[in-house]
Structure formats: structure tokens, C-alpha cells
Amino acid sequence: MSAPELRPAASGLRRVLALTGLAAGLVLMALWLSGGLSGIAAWAAAGQRQAQNLMAGALQSLRAGDPGAAATLLALCFGYGFFHAAGPGHGKLVIGSYGYGSQVPFGRLAVLSVMSSLAQAGTAILLVWLGLAALDLGREELTRLSERHMADLATVLIGLVGLWLALRGARMLRDVARPAPAHDHHHHDQTCGCGHAHGPSPVQVAQTRSFRDGLLVVMAIAARPCTGALFLLLLTWRMEIFAMGVAGTVAMGLGTASVTVAVAGLSVWARRGSLALVPQTGPFAAAARWMPGAMQLGAGALIALAAALMLV
């Protein structure tokens, strides 16, 4: 989406940059679909394993009264969250599709990513605290509750994010398609763009910053707490250093966020690239009108389908 007031050279540069983003996204996607990113998953699992073993040591030192172990534990938790997020995960699916399909600006999406991760940490803390202090659940009941029921709830919410995006995309397409036959001969020049009342303009579209969007995204991610965080919280509760567990869980959330923010950036970049594919003049310039709607519908339908398949 290059603003009309930009000089052609600057606009050309922006276009190249945006297209690079699309290419990077497509290459990553292709690598991942062909199994080419499996090395990253293996590396992440190895890192998680190591962090997990070192965390045990830090917890033991903490109990033995070594105050320096607190910083070590927090750093390890951050690393654990990072490695955990580097593997496959629902958060990246939601953030990535939302970033690609909707018109959310990067800054806002990055904030959403961090908030989602922190909310996910909050869910784990609340679940363990309620489960242990109020409901007196055992370890197995708690993890089962989280892994079966809350995971299903999260999947339903993810599906809802998808449906919501798809619905909005479909509505945008309908609005674009609606114009009466009189529009068939209508000429769109470069400055005219799509700023008519008959369809959403890029500006209008870019301003679609719904609070509901953000809430739904955060909830879909936060509904499924990370089992590793549950382990840490249970463990520190039993060891009577629950505050350390809470701090560690927040550190894990920040570690996770470091990856989802990167995914957020890539998805927004790839979206700009897709939009930059549309020529500014010529017979295909009209595609700019329906591209945003189609992208949103496509991304939404994908997550909705993926969520439906997970529930089957």
C-alpha cells in the first residue's frame, strides 16, 4: 500500500522491500511444508531438554539457599520459553494468520503478541493457584484439565478467530463486488484509488483496528497454558517457593513472546508484499480492491479449517 504522495522512487523501493517480505514468507512456508525446517524443531527440542535439566539444578540450589540461583532460574525460564516457541505452536498460527490476513499494523500486532504470551502465563498461574489452593486438585488432574479441556477450548477459540477473519474478508469482498453495472466503465486512476463510498478504501481498511480482534486473539492463545509452566508452578508450589515459580512463568512467557513478535513482523511484511504485487496502473490495478478481502478470507478459512481438523 504505497501512499500516493510518495515520490515514485521511494514508492518503488518500498515495493521492492515489501515484495522481499512476501518472498521471505513464502520461502519459509515452503521450507516448512517440505520438512526443511525440521532442523529447527530438533534444535528447539534439544534446547528445551537442556533448559529443563538446568532448571532442576537451579531449583535445587534455590532451595539450598543460594540467592544467585534466582537469576539463573529466570534466565533459564526465558530460554525455555524461547525454545518452546521455536517449535510448532498454536500461538504462531494465530498471530501469523491474523497478521497476514487482517490490516493490523506491526506495532499493534507486536503488542498483541507480548500480551498474548503474558496472558498465557497468567492462565497457567491462575490455573495452578486455583487448582491447588481452592480445589485441591492433584498434579495429574491439573495437567489433564489443561491438556484436554483447555486445549480444546483454545482450539475452538482459534477456530473462531479464523471464522471471524473469514467472515470479515467475505464481507469486504461482497462490498467490493456490490457496485452497480454503472461502475463497469468507471476508470480508476492512480490518485483515485478506491476511495469511493462503494468499497472499503485502503485507509478505511487499515483503520480496522477492532478491540474485539485483539481480545479474541489474546484469548485464543492464552486459553491453552504451556505444560512446562504448569510443571514449574506445581513444583515451586510444593517446594514452597511459589513466587519464584510465578516469576519464572512470566519469564517463560517473555521468551515465547520473543518468537511470536518475530512471526508477527514476518506476517505483516509478507502481507505488504502481497499487496505490493498489485500493479498501480493497468488493467490489474483493480485487484487492489479485492486483494485485502481475499487475503483475509483465505487466512481466516485456513485457521478455521486447521482448528476444525485439530478437534476431529
Binding site: 518452546h84 517449535g87 510448532p88 479449517l305
Partner: peptide, 9 residues
């Protein structure tokens, strides 16, 4: 995409 979300850690 399904394995991305479904694959357990």
C-alpha cells in the same frame, strides 16, 4: 497447517 497447531511439544 494442522500439524503446526496439533503437534504436541
Amino acid at each position: 497447517l494442522a500439524p503446526l497447531g496439533a503437534a504436541a511439544h
